[in-house]
Design a protein around this nucleic acid. Structure first.
Lengths: 319, 319
DNA sequence: GTGAAAGCGCTAACAT
DNA sequence: ATGTTAGCGCTTTCAC
């Protein structure tokens, strides 16, 4: 492997001059610059990134902590982060966790080892307390409304669900259920909080069994329909936190002859293209923007206030 | 930042002993090992990954060259690579290209800079000739049947499309169209080749306008229906290379009162969950396995023969 | 403008 | 078993 010293020798200059040329620093006489460039060409020189990283104490690489790579939601977040990162000359290193705490902690370890310059947590498995010992002096961005952290960007899920409740209320619904991905995690908790607050404000009663957990995929949505059918008292409307799930519900309802929205209204989230295909009324959630803002927060030096992203209702035919 | 030398000093040993302890090498007396570990604890020492990378000439990181992150196909490939990589202590660095040649070349540059130990090309924008100058002595895996490269894994698209043609033939179809993502790229070319070979073998005639390009999303599928309708002579069946597109077609056909499969049969690819929802007959394509095999090829030292993955038909109701 | 030299922090061959 | 030392390859301060 040819290095900067060999270039210097061949060009008849010092290594610092070579370094200056390579990094486009000023104060190099044109003739020497040319000699260096010629030597680089002749020896087929490529600079070693790891040496640069070590010397600079920086890698221009950001770690993304993410549970899965094959879900539309996370794909869109990634796309947002990657697009913004590219603009600033950064690359992404993926730390896929499957929501395993160990895997998540490993990402923090890598951060402390300076393998990456910072971390974006697209979703989180560990408690903040478990993470805190590894966070001092680091640059970590959270994609949730987590109190006690400096950098965060999140969708205003609480407000969105409350708005959803209001909308259903105005359509005459009083028996409302909720389909949700998981019950832990700030984003989910905020949704659930909005759900109960909304119910209380409107004087609804929420029945046991009207909250459906672990709903993330099309298949999960199809199964919800069966569960809904087997209920004694059934909600007349469902707030569903993913268009994938909603699509599963709508499709399965179609097969079973359940009329939507007459027998069951659906108010969904994401405004994913699939919601258009199924004519599902859905809140647009700026997921890609979430990723973009997360990266911008990473770049920020000074502490900045949380970035809050709002949702927008797209009315179609399931409510 | 505390380094290995400080640890050595505090523990009263040499740096090599510290290194041995840290890397679990043998031949360290238990007492010294303990002293080192105590010093590590006391100074809160974390080893610097970049120094290790530089010294070892290895990063345990593999680059993945990929056009988009938010498409189901590529999400699944990523998931496959990441899962296998994790097993072997590797991480993924993402080089998102949007199919821009420059961005793709940049990935090769990073490889030569030793920023990553190898590259997996999930999909390719440059010609092999354009890439070749940057490939000597490197470890690159292609996810396509590209002649002239050492490491490759690919789906047998040719055979799959030929089988598809046979199936449609046996159902009485003679006018067959093709929906495809793009026309360049080996995978697409193989499909097109299978399409024309199949037609020729069965004595079909393929009309102009029966090949629909740029079909990748749900929305694209919906638009295909309009194009199909405006055709003078229409194919009675469509081979569609993505379930997303098929779902768009089926859904749009439903709205327009076009009967599937009577007026238009659909034979799709991927066996994505969405094909189950829409009851679409689809070839299962082992996409995740593609990713896994790609990573295994990366690890292989000796040259190995291409890995060829076959598809499996799942019959449902669109044919 | 240019060069010498001191890092950056770790690994591993060699000597003992 | 353990220590010494020469790398790995680049950046950057300081002096001229």
């Amino acid at each position: 492997m040819t290095n900067i010293r060999e270039i210097a020798r061949l060009a008849g200059v010092s290594v610092s001059t070579v370094s200056r040329v390579l990094n486009e620093h000023p104060y190099v006489r044109e003739e020497k610059r040319r000699r260096v460039l010629a030597a680089v060409e002749e020896l087929n020189y490529i600079k070693n990134a790891n040496a640069v990283h070590l010397s600079k104490g920086k890698t221009y690489c950001i770690g993304v902590v993410i549970p899965f790579l094959n879900l539309p939601y996370f794909g869109e977040v990634l796309q947002g982060i990657a697009g913004e990162a590219l603009k600033h000359g950064y690359h992404l290193k993926i730390f896929q966790t499957n929501y395993e705490k160990e895997a998540e902690l490993d990402a923090f370890h890598r951060l402390r080892m300076k393998e990456v310059d910072g971390l974006i947590l697209a979703s989180r498995a560990n408690s903040l307390e478990a993470l805190q010992p590894f966070m001092e002096g680091t640059n970590v961005v959270f994609c949730e409304n987590l109190s006690g952290v400096e950098k965060k960007v999140f969708i205003n899920h609480y407000e969105a669900v409350r708005t959803a409740m209001d909308h259903l209320h105005s359509k005459g619904h009083k028996d409302i259920g909720l389909c949700i991905h998981r019950t832990f995690g700030t984003n989910s908790e905020e949704r659930v909080r909005g759900f109960f607050d909304g119910a209380e404000a409107a004087g609804y009663k929420i029945q046991d069994g009207w909250i459906f957990n672990d709903c993330i995929s099309l298949q999960d949505g199809r199964e919800v329909v069966g569960q809904w059918e087997s209920l004694g008292e059934r909600p007349s409307a469902l707030i569903v936190t993913s268009d994938q799930v909603s699509a599963g519900i709508v499709s399965q309802a179609g097969r079973k002859g359940i009329s939507i929205p007459d027998e069951l209204a659906i108010l969904s989230f994401d405004n994913h293209p699939i919601s258009e295909v199924f004519d599902i009324t859905s809140f647009d959630v700026p997921i890609r923007q979430l990723g973009e803002e997360a990266f911008k927060l990473f770049l920020k030096e000074e502490p900045s206030s949380p970035v809050i992203l709002e949702t927008t209702l797209f009315e179609r035919k399931t409510m």
